[in-house]
Design a protein around this nucleic acid. Structure first.
Lengths: 254, 254
DNA sequence: CGAGCAGTTGAGAGATGTCAAATACAGTGG
DNA sequence: CCACTGTATTTGACATCTCTCAACTGCTCG
């Protein structure tokens, strides 16, 4: 069974069997982390690299007045701290929202991979860029979308991201986060999130029982949220094209 | 006179004279772009790389209802599209806010630089990571800070970023953007921005005449905005340290 | 079975948005 | 150099979305 990272990257890049095996191998040492636990704290000088295998984690900061801001959800297949090595310390924390399985990859391993497997190097870079684009899209949400669209948009995004790692069945997925977590991720209050959720349910846009969310009509929810998935850059076809200069992908570009 | 990019990177990384010359050289071909013009549009498959030399530009998206969301300000020394090559097309647009001088760097040139000048490669990667961190900080602002702190925070950030490229004199800088631009960047309305600005002026936190902004007491404004500059990663000292494995910086890591 | 967290509800307050108009400002053509 | 025109800023009255606070309910887990 391929790990989430293998599934995610394999979906958008043609990976060889060797590539996949290498990726699979690094997910071996898995650690179980309780819900609401910090993987990395702001100010840490990290060395290893963390990969979420199971469960939900997030990037967050806590303000002086105790308010928490969640800047990103990390779902299975997501890497927590690919790039921090060049920044001497973390400027935010990474914590679990649910119980998580986390793989820790040593820097040496990553180095070996990016040196010897250009396909993987490119795929990992792609996933980092998508995370950046996602962060920009969240900025659009919190800045300009009303609460209901904002939450609906988040659910659409998670639908696509979880689909990419085969975690969606029948337009439904496990969303092991609290309403307070959704509030901190959308810049709302947990009570307002509660009311908006009720309204979305009433309109039949979502169905939720416990921690599982079902989207009866994805197109309708996407329409409601004005969700445009282009920022997730999921279409594999584009990546098969050669670059304009005719020598394929430019692997040196940063 | 070193270009803004040279100044910015040189501040945080020890660059050799050769490094600086190389960087300086690529800023030669400069194009003058009018205010409110697009450098790159959403959906474009770009090839060159754009570097702001003078003036303000921004990353933005326009929603269906015509609302604009600005996800980032690009100031002199900022690179607009370092990484798009691996994503087949732009998921957002880049437009000027004021009249700008923009340098276009060919992909080949960048390739040459990142291949032959590891110092520069590392510095450019650093600046990309700082932009990412900045985007996360904006998420905190729009999500959890009240309008006055949000705007004050933006002014603090610009103070630091413009200081890094020697564009600040006497705690003041040119801010050639409209109140509507600030509104779109902070997720507010231009009329609310106007009122908040008046209040900040009344409290003596800022002084502004025309397009120039002065901050009489930077510490006071930072305190007011609860501004913590760590996300800008400006301290050069950290970057002189060797990495834990003793062989200096890891230049292969993505 | 109790404790504690997550979800739900209600009433009221506050911050920010909307709309529309007035004023100031900047660039342009004469 | 000035009138002219369009954009940017400012102001006022009012609407509304979202927050606050506080209570209550219902799970889940020990």
């Amino acid at each position: 069974m391929p790990t989430p990272l293998v599934r995610k990257l394999g979906r958008c890049f043609p990976l060889s069997e060797t590539d996949k095996e290498v990726l699979q191998r690094v997910s071996t040492r898995v650690r179980l982390v309780a819900a609401r636990d910090d993987l990395i704290s702001e100010g840490d000088a990290t060395d290893g690299i963390h990969l979420v295998q199971n469960g939900f984690a997030c990037r967050y900061k806590v303000l002086r007045n105790g308010q928490r801001s969640i800047m990103a959800f990390l779902v299975p297949g997501d890497i927590c701290d690919m790039h921090v090595s060049i920044l001497s310390e973390m400027d935010h924390s990474i914590g679990t929202l649910s119980r998580c399985e986390v793989a820790t990859i040593s820097r040496d391993t990553i180095e070996e991979i990016t040196t010897n497997y250009p396909n993987l190097k490119r795929a990992l870079r792609w996933s980092a860029l998508v995370e950046e684009a996602t962060s920009r899209e969240w900025l659009v949400s919190t800045g300009r979308r009303p609460a209901d669209q904002r939450i609906a948009h988040l659910f659409c995004e998670l639908l696509m991201r979880l689909q990419a790692v085969d975690l969606v069945t029948d337009s439904g997925y496990e969303l092991p986060v609290s309403q307070a977590d959704i509030a901190d991720a959308t810049g709302l209050t947990s009570v307002h999130v509660n009311r908006v959720l009720q309204e979305l349910r009433r309109q039949g846009l979502i169905v939720s029982k416990g921690k599982s969310l079902t989207i009866p009509d994805a197109e309708r929810l996407k329409e409601f949220a004005q969700f445009n998935p282009s920022y997730l850059h999921l279409e594999p076809k584009h990546h098969d094209r050669r670059s304009p200069n005719g020598n394929g992908f430019d692997d040196r570009l940063m």
